[in-house]
Amino acid sequence: MFETPITKTEKKYGDDKIKSRAALIRIAGVTGILANVLFAAIKFVIGTAANSIAITSDAVNNLTDASSSIITLAGLKLSQKPADRKHPLGYGRIEYISGLIVAAIVLITGVEFFQTSVGRIADPEPVDFSVLQLVLLGVFVVGKLILGRLDKEFGLRSKSGALVASGTDARMDALVSTLTIITAVITMATGIVIDGYAGVAMSLFIMFNGISLIKDTVNSIIGSRADKKVVDEVKADILGIEPIRGAYDMIIHNYGPATQLGTLNLEMPDYTTVEQAYMAMEQAQRKVYQKHHIYFTFGLYSVNTYDDDVISARDQVTAIVKGTEGAISIHAFNYDKNNKLIRFDIIVDFGVHDFMEFRNKLIRKLSESYPGFTFDINVDLDYA
């Protein structure tokens, strides 16, 4: 049975996801370097022979892609340095720094070729294409599409944003090369030289990619919202473990693609013993780490299951909260009828900027149904 490079690599390393991830990135990186250097060399020869700034700029763009792969591999190597006293969580974020360097190179390349292309528009020079040259460019389009698919699949499987971005960039390069072919055909058919204009279009495209890569990398460094699919899967896995009834306040801290820590508060029935709670949390911790390579620590909320007054109050308060603009949900509900105290945590969306004003507004609404009660409300953002 035929096995893809991905399945072969994962089979080789088994459950060792860190080594498997590194191997996938190395395979994709080396393939990208060799392919892009070959593409760049042949395109440079064609561009020089045809006196085409568009093809020459496309060749340099391929060299940029090759250098991106080199920097990605270097970043991977440095990020694998073992943790030490100064960096107890390792060096995983170096991958983001290497990604930022790659993005800057892409942007600078685009700016330089924009200047060259504008000069060609102001002072056009004749271009001369052959059918063989155009056929070779067509082959490069197919090659770039294959390389783009390879990088994307390897990137998704290894959770490497740099590789996914490289895959997107490769597919966009195929589009740029297609534009170059169209430009050449128009020139051959009409004699009108639009090479400089095509170069401007491609340089703008390169700059756009560079800016997009910078934004994505900076977001990773600053800290971005956890992937919704991962969040949903983690919650589903945990809620399938008895006696867990709810999972709230998830925060995932990213210290590199291969090093993530998480915190999560769990709800369990009030009759749960300490031993049962410990066993459930230990099982949840192990299950999530094996599947997502995220190490979670947990807090614990108790859910009242036997007092009808508490259950009724929780349902009524939940209904009032849901009718409040900006509110998403409540949890950690506690109702003390004797001392006239209601406590709970509330999740709000990012449209709520003044927590104190929001809390006071909600307390006024709740006081209409529970006069004389004191309300202890903790407001949390919807982090995940």
Rank of each mutant, 00 (worst) to 15 (best):
R286F: 10
A50L: 00
I192L: 14
I342Q: 10
L38H: 03
A104R: 07
A162E: 03
A284G: 09
G167Q: 06
A74I: 07
P88S: 05
S160R: 09
L136I: 14
D84M: 07
A122I: 11
K228Q: 13
Q285A: 11
A280N: 07
S220Q: 13
A22I: 08
G90Q: 03
D382V: 01
S158V: 00
G14T: 05
K8C: 07
G299K: 12
A170T: 02
R93V: 04
V321A: 12
A54G: 10
G256P: 06
H353S: 13
F373S: 03
K361G: 15
K287P: 03
E357T: 11
K81V: 00
Q285I: 01
T31F: 14
T187W: 00
V274E: 06
G47Y: 06
I347R: 11
E357V: 00
F114E: 03
P5T: 13
K8W: 04
K17Q: 13
G138L: 03
V135Q: 01
T190K: 08
G90W: 04
I252Y: 10
S158N: 05
V131R: 12
K361Q: 14
I311M: 12
G372M: 02
A49Q: 13
T259Q: 13
L137Y: 08
N61W: 05
S220H: 10
L266M: 03
S117I: 01
D15I: 04
D237C: 05
K8M: 12
A184E: 00
V102L: 01
D315W: 01
G143S: 10
L381H: 15
Y306D: 15
V142K: 05
G262M: 06
A198C: 15
G210W: 01
I330L: 15
G240V: 02
I146D: 01
A384M: 06
R93I: 02
V317H: 08
L163S: 02
I181R: 04
Y306T: 14
I251M: 14
R286S: 11
I55M: 13
K229W: 09
N36E: 08
D336N: 15
F355C: 05
D309W: 06
G223T: 08
L362V: 02
N51K: 14
L34A: 15
A83Q: 04
S158P: 07
L134S: 06
I6A: 08
Q285C: 11
I25D: 11
K144A: 05
S329P: 01
T116D: 07
S52T: 05
K337G: 09
A41L: 15
F114W: 12
I347S: 07
I363W: 09
I53H: 09
T56C: 05
A174F: 00
G110C: 02
M207I: 07
S67H: 08
K43I: 01
K340L: 07
F2M: 04
A280K: 10
V164P: 05
F350T: 07
P269W: 02
I33K: 14
G29M: 09
I221D: 09
A83E: 09
G351S: 06
L175E: 00
I294D: 04
R359K: 15
I342C: 12
V317W: 06
V230T: 13
N219Q: 12
Y335S: 13
G92D: 04
L38A: 15
G14A: 09
G110F: 00
A319W: 02
G119E: 02
I346L: 13
L175P: 02
D237Q: 11
R343Q: 14
